[in-house]
Amino acid sequence: MGEIIKLTAALVVISMVIGLAVAVTNNKTKDRIKEQQLHIQQSAVEAVFPSGVAISEHEGDGGLPYKYWSASDNGELIGYAFKITGQGYAGDILFMISADTAGKILGMTVLEHNETPGLGSRVTEVASNKYIWYPVGSSEKVKPWFTEQFEGLSCFKPIGIDKSGEWHKFDAQRRAQLQSRNTVTAITGSTITTAAFTKSIERKAAVYVASLKEKYLEK
């Protein structure tokens, strides 16, 4: 009996001391952690809008997602941003997309995905120009070519998929051609991943922008 008390006492004392230590640390770092998470959220939205715009968050209902953002430049509404989930090759792909009220896509960022490395995961591929030999290379923010090619396309029209090559290797003329046909290039060998984006933009983003347009016009 005495032994059980001794064992229990040891465990209780240690867990109380530990609990106290962790609780104190938690208290001290709580606010900072919250700040950081807001900051990460904010950067994701800022990435899809041009720089220097004022971004506000809204709660949606009806045909709109739970949370969406609008951006205005000097009081003038530029566009809206949403998080969209698409059905990729190996699970869901979560991405942020922004469009103006006419349905023109302003920017896109991939947030989460589980695609095959070397194939579907190339949606976030950035041609890095920083080498270990001269790490002070150019430090401007380079966008992944896959998401950049969506800029300027209309989400109200079906987005075509071109399999003849990859966008980052095309010259300005071919890129203009693709844009006029509302078409993007697929990642070689990953048509399903590419189609996940085009289909979910057609199905979801178009619907959201359309219902926002109504609201906007109503105002």
């Binding site: 230590a21 962790v22 640390t25 938690n26 770092t29 900072r32 952690i33 950081q36």
Partner: peptide, 9 residues
């Protein structure tokens, strides 16, 4: 746990 909180912050 303490380390994790610090890293998150």
């Amino acid at each position: 746990s303490i380390l994790h909180l610090f890293i998150k912050a």
